[in-house]
Amino acid sequence: MKKKFLLFVLICISGSYAFAQDDSEFEAEFNKWSIEGGVGLTKQWQRTFSPGYYAVDPNFLAVDLGLRHMLDEKFGYKMNFVYNKFSASSDADIDYTTKQYGVALEGVMNIGRMLHFESWTKTLGLLGHAGAGVGYLDYDQISVGKDWVGNVVGGLTAQIKLSNRLALNLDGTYRANIRQNRGFGGDEIDFNNLAGFFNGTVGLSVYLGKNKTHADWYLREDEKIKVLDSNVSNIEERIQAVDDTKAEKSDLEQTQADVDQLAKDVDALKNQEPASYDEFVKQLVNDGYISVYFDFNSTKVQGSSTNSINFMKAYLTKNTAASVDVQGFADELGSDEYNQKLSQKRADAVVKLLTEAGVDPSRLNAIGKGEDTSVDKSSAGARQIARRATFIVK
Rank of each mutant, 00 (worst) to 15 (best):
S343T: 10
F191K: 12
A130V: 08
L10C: 13
D57E: 08
D360T: 09
R47H: 06
V281P: 05
L170T: 02
A55V: 01
Q21G: 09
T245K: 14
T317R: 09
M1K: 11
K318S: 13
R220D: 09
S87D: 12
T173F: 06
R220Y: 03
I309T: 08
P51A: 07
Y218E: 00
Y207E: 06
D138M: 01
V326Q: 09
K270N: 14
Q141E: 09
Y77A: 12
A158Q: 13
V292T: 06
A18Q: 12
D72N: 15
E279R: 05
L162Q: 09
V152Y: 06
F60T: 05
T213L: 11
Q302P: 00
L168F: 15
A268Q: 09
L252C: 02
E25P: 03
I290H: 01
F30C: 03
S205T: 03
N169H: 04
N231F: 00
I13M: 12
V39D: 04
D287T: 04
L105Y: 14
A275W: 02
E73M: 11
E356F: 10
V285Y: 04
D72Q: 02
V324K: 11
G102A: 03
R179H: 14
T245Q: 14
L316Q: 09
E221K: 10
G133K: 11
A386G: 06
F49P: 01
